[in-house]
Design a protein around this nucleic acid. Structure first.
Ligand SMILES: Nc1ncnc2c1ncn2[C@@H]1O[C@H](COP(=O)(O)OP(=O)(O)OP(=O)(O)O)[C@@H](O)[C@H]1O
Length: 752
DNA sequence: AACTTACCATTTTTT
DNA sequence: ATGGTAAGTT
């Protein structure tokens, strides 16, 4: 047996120990960039290469599918041909649990063609539950109820346990009623939500000895990445599964626990040693990612948290440049500044993939998208609403889902009148009433509509609809999903419907529906390559619901990454821009008003953000920002104040308070004119200022009489150009909208 | 049943 | 600003 040298190459002693101590429970507790993921990857390769287990006997849980793919790729590079193999159990907790449930659906209490409901589906079911129970969604917001139910499941509380645990809480007792009805409905629909996947897996294993033993025998080694963000249900699953071989390896960092809103429980990592008394704890204390200044800043921020295990983290890299702090005028100026810095650094040899723009909320992506596009910078936005959750795409998917399972009422009622078939609310209510009274599925009622006199007026339409679904069912052939797709389009006429509804929007929708077809074809090919089997409707629908944005393959792999701090977890970039560092945005308003834990989690998020950077870190905040269409002044985030000034290089009076900022200065700044500022006779270098000169439309580019185009007002001729109190104003006579007076920086005019 | 209008919250983060 | 919904109108 040969250990390829490279498996232990470039590892320090502690890391080697973590890779090679393969037996028993091991916890690697270590700070950011200390090589936890690298250790986990090497350990898998080491286990295979040592012949301790085959790839199919390793359960390895990552946070995203993409991380799983990367680990697989790395392991393949490290191992000899003989030791490679499919990794059926390398994936997110959701995909691995789903795989177990698919193997034993009956034991889990479901029919084999159960479906997964995404957040939207889940909310619509909860909504109908609340309606049915006459609970106003004003007293109980949908989001609140949904979150309560999710948390209960994360903590392994079914609706009875949840009701019992909250017997003296009126609000929660109401939630328990909704929870109960919700679960009843989900059972009727033969559907599970994301939390049910975990919850049901736990009970599948707990209540079925043969199933538990079957999986315990398979999983010789269990490895968990990002352990700090597991919830109680997950933890119990891992504990149960590892009972036989007892080889449970977890890596994590309590300072990077940022998913408590999803039920993640930091106690899992803090109590690991107690729960596994004979476990080995390994600490990695060298950071191999970030330059010293960045690491120092991160440590200074995180040490303000009280609830944490103190860790040492030494640097292995040079001091690096200082952290760039920039105070932007507003969100547009923020994006322009970032774009300009990126351009500047690209000239110095960096490339698109070296950059990341990280923010707290998805809503902040808009400006960056616009500004980067205008400047021809290649970028990619992760997160936000995914392609598959667009209305028109969901419509087509809903047809596919109903073909797969006519129990799926959420999808059924989504498409029953889409495109319009003259089946309205009244008919739908009747169908649901009959279904519930007769204890049959809604689809059964629709199919036999002529048997119910209440439905007589609509029965012809309902019959036509169910005939179409039956016809589509004939087209569901494994490996030929595009044919099903083609037939859905043909029989429903959904494209034509969208086009006649609104020509412009319709074209965009038709495009998206077309893109769905390429998604089908791509997934079909990669599925056949990866698993050597034809893509079934079940597998396709599952991939669609569990896939995240980060998993999508891109044509090019050189782009600036734009994403939330949450999605940046586990990644690294040479240059990181932390934007929107303002009180109320980051830390978010929500977290500030709640308990200390809320704020500490925000701080951990900040720590995660800072430690994504390898070479250069920028922190940016805006003096004012437009939210809900209203512009409001903003204060610098408290987290910035926790970074010592000697680590910071402040641009544009970043440390001054807004009251003292000069009016003239601001106006000049707004126009991005080159400015020379003097202080005590000496010119002061203000980096932020000079950079911006090329950013905004220049006055020189425009002449009176030019034909220009405005996003909202359309085309027109420039009537006048002048300076109003330090602001460049352009007056345009628009063909449609008439004469408008616009501030040049914000006008976004394009020459035609 | 389909269409119109007016009002409402929504933005914290995701599998 | 926007999109979703409730109520009212055709
Ligand atoms: N012994 C080592 N020598 C050189 N580079 C290393 C070593 N160990 C890890 N690295 C590098 O350090 C960086 C961080 O490693 P890795 O992503 O595994 O850390 P991590 O602990 O998982 O980080 P995080 O907690 O932030 O996700 C990677 O670029 C990795 O290649």
């Amino acid at each position: 047996m040969s250990i390829k040298n490279n498996i232990l190459d470039n590892l320090n002693e502690e890391q080697k120990k973590a890779v090679t101590s393969t037996q028993g429970a091991v916890l690697v507790l270590a700070g950011a960039g200390s090589g936890k993921t690298r250790v986990l990857t090497r350990r898998i390769a080491y286990i295979l290469q040592q012949g301790l287990a085959r790839a199919s006997q390793i359960l390895a849980i990552t946070f995203t599918n993409k991380a799983a793919a990367q680990i697989k790729e790395r392991v393949y590079e490290l191992c000899d041909e003989d030791f490679k193999g499919y990794f059926p159990w390398l994936g997110t907790i959701h995909s691995c649990c789903l795989k177990m449930l698919r193997q034993y659906p009956e034991e889990a209490g479901f029919k084999s063609n159960f479906l997964i409901y995404d957040t939207d589906d889940k909310k619509s079911v909860i909504k109908s539950c609340m309606k049915q129970l006459n609970i106003s969604d004003k007293a109980f917001s949908l989001g609140y109820v949904a979150a309560q139910i999710s948390r209960a499941k994360d903590d392994l509380l079914g609706y009875e346990e949840f009701a019992a645990a909250n017997a003296n809480d009126f609000q929660k007792k109401t939630v328990a009623k909704i929870y109960e009805l919700y679960q009843t409905k989900m059972k009727e629909y033969n559907a599970m939500d994301f939390d049910d996947i975990i919850f049901n897996t736990y009970y599948l294993l707990k209540n079925n000895k043969h199933v538990l033993e079957y999986f315990q025998n398979i999983f010789k080694y269990i490895l968990i990445d990002e352990f700090q963000d597991t919830n109680i249900a997950q933890y119990r699953i891992f504990a149960m599964l590892s009972m036989k071989y007892r080889n449970l390896f977890v890596v994590g960092d309590d300072d990077q626990s940022i998913y408590s809103f999803r039920g993640a429980n930091i106690k899992n990592i803090l109590n690991f040693e107690k729960d596994f008394p004979d476990s080995t704890v390994i600490k990695l204390e060298t950071n191999y990612r970030s330059c010293e200044n960045i690491l120092k800043a991160a440590n200074c921020v995180i040490r303000n948290n009280a609830a944490r295990k103190t860790k040492t983290l030494k640097t292995s890299k040079p001091e690096g440049s200082r952290i760039n702090l920039y105070k932007a005028y507003n969100e547009l100026n923020e994006a322009i500044y970032v774009a300009n810095e990126i351009k500047k650094l690209i000239k110095q040899g960096y490339t698109y993939r070296d950059f990341a723009v990280l923010y707290r909320t998805n809503a902040q992506s808009r400006v960056f998208e616009r500004v980067f596009r205008e400047r021809d910078l290649d970028y990619r936005i992760f997160g936000g609403l995914s392609f598959f959750s667009r209305q028109e795409v969901k419509d087509v998917l809903a047809y596919m889902r109903v073909v797969f399972s006519t129990d799926d009422d959420a999808s059924l009622f989504r498409i029953i009148n889409q495109p319009k078939r003259g089946i309205g609310d009244t008919t739908i209510k009747k169908i649901q009433a009959i279904a519930s009274y007769e204890s049959v599925t809604s689809y059964d009622v629709i199919k036999n509509a002529d048997k119910y006199e209440q439905l007589s007026s609509a029965s012809a339409k309902l019959k036509a609809f169910s005939d179409m679904i039956e016809q589509l069912k004939e087209c569901d052939v494994p490996g030929k999903l595009e044919e099903l797709y083609d037939n859905i389009l043909k029989l429903t006429g959904i494209n034509e419907y969208y086009l006649q509804e609104d020509a412009n929007l319709g074209r965009e929708r038709v495009e998206n529906i077309k893109e769905l077809k390429s998604a089908i074809v791509t997934m079909k090919q990669s599925h056949e390559e990866d698993y050597g089997e034809l893509l079934t409707l079940a597998a396709f629908l599952e991939n669609v619901t569990l896939a995240t944005d980060a998993d999508k393959e891109q044509a090019s792999d050189n782009y600036i990454s734009i994403m939330t701090l949450h999605s940046a977890k586990g990644l690294e970039f040479k240059v990181v821009f932390l934007v929107g560092m303002e009180e109320g945005l980051f830390p978010s308003f929500m977290s500030m008003s709640e308990s200390m834990e809320g704020l500490e989690e925000e701080r951990r998020l900040c720590y995660v953000g800072i430690t994504r950077a390898m070479d250069i870190l920028y922190c940016i905040y805006a003096e004012e920002r437009t939210k809900f269409g209203k512009t409001q002044p903003c204060d610098q985030s408290r987290f910035l104040k926790e970074i010592p000034r000697e680590l910071v290089n402040a641009s544009r009076k970043a440390f001054e308070s807004s009251e003292t900022s000069g009016f003239i200065f601001d106006k000049l700044f707004m126009q991005n004119k080159p400015v020379s500022v003097t202080k005590g006779g000496k010119p002061v270098d203000i980096p932020g200022l000079n950079i911006n000169t090329e950013a905004v439309m220049k006055k020189e580019d425009y002449n009176i009489g030019d034909r220009v185009m405005h996003k909202k007002y359309g085309e027109g001729y420039i009537k006048d150009l002048y300076d109003d109190n330090g602001m460049d104003i352009v007056e345009v006579n628009f063909d449609m909208a008439g004469i408008k007076r616009l501030v040049m920086e914000f006008a976004k005019l394009v020459k035609v």
